[in-house]
């Protein structure tokens, strides 16, 4: 008998606070892929803000919490390359040199996936429920792309969405300027980088830019709207794959 995969959904703190619908879209997709999905209710944040800001103790407390909350599952899936990258790449660094915690961190890292990577490679989502009438350009978020190798996974899944046409924009791999607290500490530079991204998006002529990280979404959407673009949609890949209803 094939045992159903038990997946712990790490919603991420930004989805929890700002866009719960992305979390539910991820949940639907994982269930559509045949997984049993559990959302540990005590989850908060992966600790990346602390890690990236040089506050190792804070990052550590939260990393221990995430490990304890999720290590019982077969897999951990996050609708974010950034948070999945934190668990997969940076937790082992965070516990470097500490036997017991390091082993637990590495064990969890090995079973942690970004959503589209999981839906393509681990629990294949053959029939994608979403339908999207229009062209979309995919923006490669940095951590997913360079830490986890998320590049073709979202595109392969989007290609299965009914009526959706995928169009590449120039410089899709160039950072949008979000960078976590960078976007606040260096708002002016960050906004200028977002502007460059928005120009590429518009030049692609796509109806929507689709991406896999909420931080980049807020950044790009915020800049588009501020500069008067009311029509280019900014969507999380989970929303598009799950369909809008």
């Amino acid at each position: 008998m094939i045992r159903v995969m038990r997946v712990g959904l790490f919603v991420t703190c930004l989805v929890d606070l700002v866009r719960p619908r992305i979390g539910f879209a991820a949940l639907e997709l994982l269930e559509a892929a045949g997984c049993e999905v559990i959302v540990p209710p005590s989850q908060t944040c992966c600790g990346q803000p602390g890690w990236n800001s040089g506050d190792r103790p804070a990052a550590r407390v939260l990393a221990e919490k995430v490990i304890a909350e999720f290590e019982a599952f077969d897999y951990v899936v996050a609708p974010s390359g950034s948070c999945a990258g934190m668990i997969k790449v940076h937790y082992p660094q965070l516990f470097g040199g500490e036997g017991a915690w390091l082993a637990r961190a590495e064990a969890l890292a090995a079973r942690t996936h970004e959503l589209t990577d999981f839906l393509l490679n681990v629990a294949p989502l053959e029939r994608v429920p979403g339908r999207f009438a229009g062209t979309v350009a995919y923006h490669d978020s940095c951590a997913g792309l360079r830490e986890l190798g998320v590049k073709h996974q979202p595109r392969a899944l989007l290609a299965r969405v009914q009526d959706l046409a995928l169009r590449e924009m120039k410089d899709s791999e160039v950072c949008c300027g979000f960078g976590g607290t960078f976007s606040i500490k260096f708002g002016e530079i960050s906004a200028a980088m977002a502007q460059a991204k928005c120009e590429r998006i518009r030049a692609s002529g796509a109806d929507a830019v689709v991406l896999g990280d909420l931080g980049c979404m807020l950044n790009i959407e915020g800049r588009l709207r501020r500069t008067g673009d009311e029509h280019t949609r900014v969507l999380h890949v989970a929303e598009v794959l799950a369909g809008e209803k």
Binding site: V11, V15, D16, L17, V18, R19, P20, R21, G23, F24, V39, P41, Q43, S183, I184, K185, F186, G187, E188, S190, A191, A192, A194, Q195, M217, L218, N219, E221, G222, R223, R225, R226
Partner: peptide, 23 residues
């Protein structure tokens, strides 16, 4: 500190309830 964000961008408003409370 959020001013750093909104000097050059809007901040898309949250939906109103958190995922965890809905769940």
């Amino acid at each position: 500190a959020g001013r750093g964000w909104t000097e050059g961008r809007d901040f898309p408003a949250p939906e109103g309830k958190t995922f965890r409370e809905l769940y």
